[in-house]
Structure formats: C-alpha cells, structure tokens
Design a protein around this nucleic acid. Structure first.
Lengths: 163, 163
DNA sequence: TCCTAGTTGCAAATGATTTGCAAAAAGCCT
DNA sequence: AGGCTTTTTGCAAATCATTTGCAACTAGGA
C-alpha cells in the first residue's frame, strides 16, 4: 500500500491500529472509534471522557469496552496511563518522547516538559544507592506566577503547601 | 510541664496527639492507638496495615475510624499520604523534612531521598513558563543494580523499609 | 458464506475510601 | 462523681473508578 499523504492524526490512528493488530486482537468498530479519538486528542482525557468522545462515532459503545481497549493499548505501549492527583487515570498516545508533567492546580491544564539534567541527577542518585531506575514519575503542581492562592476550585481541601 | 526524657517515638506520639487536640477533636482510645502506631512506624504502611497494627492495642477498632483519623491528621499536616503506583495510599508521620521516594520494584521497599539540585531545577523549569511550584511529587521506581528483571514474584509489595 | 475465537454490552463484582446513623464515650460544668 | 452536650464509633451501605462473568454478537480467515 502506497504511503499516501496523511495528517499527523491519521498517522497516529494507523500506528495505534497497527499496534492492536500486531497484538493479535480484532479491529472492531468500537476500537476504531476509540483509536481515532485517542489519535486526535492533544490533551490528557480520562476514560470517561474518551468514552464520551467515542460515543459520537459509535453510539452505545460501552465504558467497559473503552477500559478494555485502553488496557490493550497500554500493554502494547502505544498509549500511556497517568495517575495524577485525585481521581481517575488519564491517557495520552505514547508517540511522543518521554516527558514529565506540570499540572496547573487552578485550571487543571497539563503542560509537558522534559529535563535531561533532572533525569541525569535521578539516575545518579539511584546509582549512589546501588540502584538503577526502571521508570520514574515526576509531577509539578504549579500555579501561574503572581496569581494569589485564592480558593482553589478543585478537589482536595487544605492541601496548600510550604515548600 | 517538665520536659521528661522521652524516646523519639514518644515525642512523635505527643506531637500527633497535640495536633489532634489543637484541631479540636477528642482524644479517644482508638485515636491514641493509631497515633502510637504511626509514631513508631518507620515505614510507609497503608490504612489496612495501620488498622491491623492498631487492633493490637484496641481490638475491634474499625477501619472507618482509622481512615477518619488519618484524614484528620493529614488535614493538620502531621502525616503525609502517598499514592504510589498501584493500590492503596500509604502514610508516614510528617516530622521529617520534605523528601521524595525511591521504590524498589522487586521488594516494595521505600527509600527516602532529597536532592536540592533537582528541586532547584524543577523551580527553574516552572519559572521559565511563568509558574511557581505549589508542590511536587517525584518517585523513582528502581531495581538493585545487576539484578536481572526476572518475573517479579509478588505483584503487590508489602511496606517493608530499611532506614 | 460459514465458522469460530475474540468482542461487546450489561450487570454484578472489586477494592479502596467515605458516609449515614444510632449507640457509646469524651470533655466540660457543677 | 454525676449530668449533659457534642463528638466519635462501629457497622452497613454507598461511592468511585475499574474489572469481570456471561450470553449474545461479529471480525476475519477458510
């Protein structure tokens, strides 16, 4: 099949589809829908949100199916699951390089970033104790500078900080 | 009240008790038990484990009470709740300085560490994007060097730790 | 098209944590 | 110590996100 010119989103969708196919699972209508949703998502939606978006293509698709497919995709390493503070896991297609997250505590916005210097220090610290890093997780919960900490609109109470 | 010579554990227990008292809550038998358990814990037990240990002092204490008291203590900032990968939240008395965690993926052991250099870099990165850090979370999932990643025996590691 | 193993939707099960409620106990006052 | 009011407790039931059992359904190769 000739490599037609396709959008980034299409390419991602293909990649995800291929991953599933390679995993030996069948490509169903509902899976295709979720794959598309994941491919065009540039944020970090949770399972319920992904389900909501998938329903536009396949009304009636069940949440279980979404969860099951997400697990399959995660097993194939083509999507990543993040467990940020609070509640449900959030997902993103894993086509990007490794990166960490900065979460705006006021808006819930997620900003991706990566610091080789930090990675290096982490490895160094682990090595000092005779360990090697299998994987790591780093999340910075941040607030726009200058903005005063009014009543934060989100979940966990009394969690202000004194770093 | 004369400052009697007391063990570190006793001091911690006092501190926790005081925190609760200051919060205006009553000091009950079950709370005292949990406070003692927390004070003498040098690992990172989860609620169920804390309940188990508390039962030795107050047979019949309910898990709800443990959860409720843990929340109160957390609100007072005298204990910290950590949501490591996988399952239940794990707790530790917050008398120590801020630190991050390294979790041995094979044994479940938790090692505490702190790196000013990393903290500085984190603040720097946030600042570059116009943010200031409210709090952060960093966990290194590690493995003893040289040890090959065989099929890890246990899925849910206990809460052992060596200080 | 047929056939079969992999899938789906749904409801019920999980597992951690929370909550409603009536009985029990803490802390304060006398 | 006795009384009284308010907070706590234990228990069962409720949440919440996620998983699973199962019978009906379908993708995809023969």
């Amino acid at each position: 099949m000739p490599k037609k010119r396709m959008t980034k989103t299409q390419e991602r969708a293909e990649r995800l589809t291929r991953a599933l196919r390679d995993a030996g699972v069948r490509i169903t209508r509902q899976r295709t829908a979720l794959l598309n949703v994941l491919a065009e998502a540039d944020d970090h939606p949770d399972a319920v949100e992904l389900h909501r978006r998938s329903e536009e293509q396949v009304p009636g698709i069940s949440l279980s199916t979404v969860y099951r497919t997400l697990s399959a995709l995660e097993d194939q390493g083509v999507i990543q699951r993040h467990q940020f503070e609070g509640d449900a896991a959030r997902f993103e297609h894993a086509e990007t390089e490794h990166h960490d997250h900065m979460i705006d505590v006021d808006t819930g916005n997620v900003i991706e970033f990566c610091s080789d210097r930090i990675e290096r220090l982490q490895a160094e610290i682990a090595a000092e104790m005779g360990y090697e890093i299998v994987h790591h997780r780093m999340e910075l919960y941040v607030r726009k500078k200058g903005r005063d900490g009014g009543a934060s609109a989100d979940g966990l109470p009394g969690d202000e900080e004194q770093d």
